[in-house]
């Protein structure tokens, strides 16, 4: 069964680029336009990994991660974050406190994102 990747961003063209690359690599993908919608998809679809932007309407990336870590069913979900913010976010804090696997700065490379997803899921498989 293909691994399921959920992409969460309010910029539709960013979602489409990442989705296109991941789909071509054989992943099953779904997209959500903001954190709230992402949370609803996570509960219903249970993805293997989440890629989310930080700044989104309704519920932002950090809010979404907090919800995920606060729920026993989703506590272990691997999370990658994308951000266009420069200096406000600290990866060390995100990693230590919220177990975020990677923080990629925008503009990002779809190729690089795919590699990160591959690595993250491979590590998951080893742990499992």
């Amino acid at each position: 069964m293909c691994k399921r990747v959920l992409l969460c961003d309010d910029e539709i063209h960013i979602l489409r680029a990442a989705e296109f690359k991941l789909k071509r690599a054989g992943y099953d993908t779904r997209i959500a336009g903001d954190g709230q919608e992402g949370w609803e998809v996570i509960q219903e679809w249970l993805p293997d990994i989440l890629i989310t932007d930080c700044q989104m309407p309704r519920l932002d990336g950090l809010g979404l991660v907090q919800r995920i870590r606060g729920n026993p069913a989703t506590q272990q979900l691997p999370v990658l974050m994308l951000t266009a913010k420069g200096f406000e976010l600290s990866f060390d804090e995100l990693s230590a406190r919220w177990n975020v696997l990677a923080l990629s700065a925008k503009p990002f490379s779809p190729r690089g994102l795919l590699e990160t997803v591959n690595r993250a899921l491979a590590a998951e498989a080893v742990v499992a």
Partner: peptide, 9 residues
């Protein structure tokens, strides 16, 4: 950065 991210991607 947001439109730039789209362009680069």
């Amino acid at each position: 950065k947001t439109p730039l991210a789209g362009i680069k991607a």
